[in-house]
Amino acid sequence: MYEGKNEWALEVEDLTVAYADKPVLWDIDLRVPKGVKMAIIGPNGAGKSTLVKAAMGLIKPVAGEVRIFGEPRESSEGQIAYVPQRSTLSWDFPTDVIDVVTMGTYGRVGWFRRSGAVEKAEAMAALEQVEMTNFARRPIAALSGGQQQRVLLARALVQGAPIYILDEPFQGVDAPTERAIIEVLNGLADQGKTIVVVHHDLQTIPEYFDAVLLLNVRAIDSGPVAEVFTEENLRLTFGGRVGVLAASGADQL
């Protein structure tokens, strides 16, 4: 179903996750080819954030396994750069922009050591990519929503990982930020990085992504946008509630 691609960046097999007996993800199978930009879409409570967290090992599944470039997830730390949902963080934390971005290097700086000039330079380079150089010394409490999102993206950039997972990066950001993020993601895809984005705006799927997973507790379908982003699949995922949105989204295909 993916043309000319047979190497998987991320494989999820038989994944089931439950919170207090209630399954939030049921028997998910997913294969993300290397170098693809994939959106995960589904209604509220579909388990989108849970899926990406389980894929990274942040949540313990009831069953199932995750492989990264063919290796078990447990033995491949540091392969995924993660951009969590902006709203889940405490932005009142006493720190500034450059410090948050430098956190992306903490995985490789090593125990008992401090990040130094090299790490700071990497962080500044990442800030330049998201056009936030002038904000390096700004306390994070003083940032707008769009600026917060750019900082989180910059922090993921300095990780230099082959896979990027972003949870709702366009939620509540201004239009220039949305364009800036998309440009950075396109640049990463050109370098052969694999990108997985939890997304909620159906209209922009065909423009922004080349693969999609439709999720509603179960995996409804996944594959190239042209094949699986269909009205039928959207109805199965969202349950007929998105008639207007679905029609306009699917029309662009």
Binding site: Y82, L89, Q159
Partner: peptide, 16 residues
């Protein structure tokens, strides 16, 4: 630095 990133963003710390 570990305690700092743990306090600010524990999920990100785990992903590191």
């Amino acid at each position: 630095k570990e305690f700092k990133v743990l306090s600010f963003d524990p999920d990100f710390a785990a992903s590191l």
